[in-house]
Amino acid sequence: MSRLADVRFRAATAFQRRINPLLRRLPLQTVIETKGRVSGLPRQTPVGGRRVGDAFWLVSEFGERSQYVRNIQADPRVRVRIRGRWYAGTARLVPDDDPVARLRRLPRFNGLGVRAFGTNLLTVRVDLAEV
């Protein structure tokens, strides 16, 4: 990883550590809940994305370096809160998808942040089932 990419990663994660606890409390904020790969405890991460049919699509700005992506790799069973309603789902990484093209179809505000800070974009698809 380049020095610039590492600086962007550290700056973004430091910011997210402070803002994520506030964001995940907002009732309409979309949140993905994974199981901690070491602790086994639920981990909630605010995300931007869009539901398309029975799937929820999002783009991870740091790819496999993102903690929630690493948790998905260990256990793909997740929950997603969309507009205040929880859905169970199975997440999978879609490395063959074009994440920049995918961002164009996702909410604009989130897409701008992901593109601005992201260093290793990775598409994630969650196949949903209502809880």
Rank of each mutant, 00 (worst) to 15 (best):
A55V: 14
P21E: 12
R83I: 01
L121N: 02
E61T: 02
E61G: 10
L112F: 13
I72N: 03
R3F: 13
A5D: 12
V100E: 07
L23D: 04
V7S: 15
E130L: 14
G84V: 12
R37S: 02
R104P: 00
A129C: 11
I72V: 13
V52K: 15
D75L: 00
T13I: 12
T90S: 01
R25P: 01
Y87M: 03
N71W: 05
R125C: 10
P27H: 11
F117M: 12
A74E: 04
A88G: 06
M1Q: 13
L121S: 03
S66I: 02
A11V: 15
V131D: 05
G63M: 07
P21G: 11
R92T: 07
N20Q: 13
G48Y: 05
T90C: 00
R51G: 11
P27W: 09
A14N: 12
R102L: 10
A12E: 11
S60V: 05
R50D: 07
V126K: 03
N110S: 15
D6L: 13
V80F: 04
T119I: 08
G36M: 08
A129R: 15
T123D: 08
P27I: 09
G36V: 07
D75V: 00
E61V: 01
D54E: 15
R83Q: 13
A116W: 14
T30M: 12
R10I: 10
E64Y: 10
W86V: 09
P76G: 01
P27E: 08
E130C: 10
R108F: 08
A91H: 04
D127F: 02
L28D: 07
V100D: 04
R85Y: 01
G89M: 03
G111P: 03
T13Q: 11
F117K: 06
G89E: 01
R105H: 12
A116D: 10
A5I: 00
A12M: 14
I82G: 05
P27A: 09
I19R: 11
L106V: 08
R65Y: 00
A91N: 06
T123F: 03
R10H: 15
R83T: 08
